[in-house]
Design a protein around this nucleic acid. Structure first.
Lengths: 194, 194
DNA sequence: CGTCTAATAGACCAACCGTTCTATTGGAGC
DNA sequence: GCTCCAATAGAACGGTTGGTCTATTAGACG
C-alpha cells in the first residue's frame, strides 16, 4: 500500500462527510471540494463512489474499535473495563458532531439485508460483540456469551437514544443497567445494594 | 376531512415504500405507480413530497403506538404488561418485512437534529417513553421515571440490533434484562413501603 | 534535456429527481 | 343538457447525480 496523499485526502473527506451527513446525502462533488482534489483523481484511486464507501466502512471499523480498546485500556480491574465501555460511549456522545453509529446508519441507508454495505455493518457489529465477549471472559463472568450480548444491546440502545434525542444521558443510563448485569453475573445473589 | 380514496391510496403506498426502502430511496414515481394514481393527484392532496412524508410520520406514530397498546392490553398483571412490551417487539421483529423503527430510520436519514423530520422522530420517541412511563406507574414501580427510561433504551437496543442483524433474538434478550430491572424496582418498592 | 507519471480543470453525458403545466376525461348534481 | 370538479395522461422544466473523456500541467528521475 503506497500512502498517496491525494488518496488519503479523498478518504479523509469521505469519512467526515459520510458520517456527518450520511452516505446518500453526500455527493461526489462535495467530497472532491472538501478534499481539494480533482474529479478524475477519485476514479484514479477508487473504482467508484461505492468503492470509496467500502473503504470508509473499513477504516471506520478499525478506528472506532481501536478508540474503544484504547479507552478501555486505561481502566483497571477487568470488570471496571466493562463499565469503561459506557464511559467511552459518554465521551463519544459528548463530541459536538456526534451523529450516531456509522454502521447503524449505513444499515438504515441500505435497508436490504442482502446489500453488501448492510452486511459489512452486521460484520462490524459482530466484531464489536466479540471484543466485548473477550472482556467478559477476562472478567471471569459466568455466562459470558449471554452478558456480552446484553452489553452489546445496551450499547446500541444508548447510541440510538442519544442520536435521536441529544442530551438524553443515555450512556449513563446504560452504564447503570450494565452495572447490575455484571454484578449479577459475578455469581452473587441479588441484593438491593446501591 | 373527507376520506378521498385517491389520497388514501397515495398515503398507503407511501407508508409501505417509505418504511421498506427508506424515504430518500423512494421516488415520487414509485409511490405513484404503487398507488395506481396520476402524477398531479399527489400535488392535489399534498403540498409536496415533504408534505406526504410528514403525513406518513403522523400515521406511523399513531398506528405503531396503537398496535403496542392493543397488544399490551391482552396481558394481565401490570408488570406482565411491561414485559409484554418485549413480546410485542418479538412479534414485530418476526414480520418478514421488518425494517427497524421508522423513526430511528428517519432520524438517520435526516441527520441534522434541527430538521423537522428529525424532531418529529424525537417527539415520537418521547411519546413512546410517556406510554411506558404510564405503565410503570400503573405497576407501582419505585423510580418509575428511571425505569421507563431504562425500558425505552432496551426497546431501542433490541430494535436496532434486530434490524442490523436479523435473527439475533434481541427481543428475548431485552426481555430478560427488563425482567431483572422490573424485579429490582418492585423489591425497592416493598422495601420502601415496609 | 527528454520521459514518465500523477494530478489537474473542465466540458460532457445519460439518468434521475421533484415539480409544474396543459389538455382531456368522466361522473355527480342541479 | 349543462356545469362543476376530481382525476387522468403525458410532456416539459430545471437541477442534481455518478461517471467518462480530453487536454494540459508540474515534478521526479535518469
Amino acid at each position: 500500500m503506497k500512502p498517496s496523499p491525494t488518496r488519503e485526502a479523498l478518504l479523509e473527506a469521505a469519512c467526515v462527510l459520510f458520517y456527518q451527513r450520511g452516505i446518500h446525502a453526500t455527493s461526489v462533488d462535495a467530497i472532491l471540494e472538501k478534499a481539494g482534489v480533482a474529479r478524475q483523481s477519485l476514479y484514479l484511486h477508487f473504482t467508484s463512489k461505492d468503492g470509496l464507501i467500502a473503504e470508509f466502512l473499513k477504516v471506520r471499523d478499525e478506528r472506532w474499535r481501536g478508540a474503544m480498546q484504547r479507552y478501555i485500556a486505561t481502566a483497571g480491574e477487568p470488570d471496571q473495563k466493562l463499565l469503561a465501555i459506557f464511559d467511552f460511549l459518554a465521551s463519544w456522545f459528548a463530541e459536538p458532531d456526534f451523529h450516531g453509529c456509522a454502521f447503524i446508519n449505513t444499515a438504515v441507508e441500505y435497508a436490504d439485508p442482502q446489500h453488501p454495505f448492510h452486511q459489512l455493518s452486521a460484520e462490524h457489529k459482530a466484531r464489536v460483540r466479540a471484543d466485548v465477549l473477550a472482556l467478559c471472559l477476562e472478567a471471569g463472568l459466568s455466562e459470558a456469551e449471554a452478558v456480552a450480548g446484553q452489553l452489546a444491546l445496551l450499547m446500541e440502545g444508548a447510541t440510538v437514544t442519544e442520536q435521536v434525542t441529544r442530551g438524553s444521558q443515555a450512556a449513563r443510563q446504560a452504564r447503570q443497567i450494565a452495572e447490575i448485569l455484571i454484578y449479577r453475573s459475578k455469581g452473587e445473589t441479588d441484593a438491593c445494594v446501591n
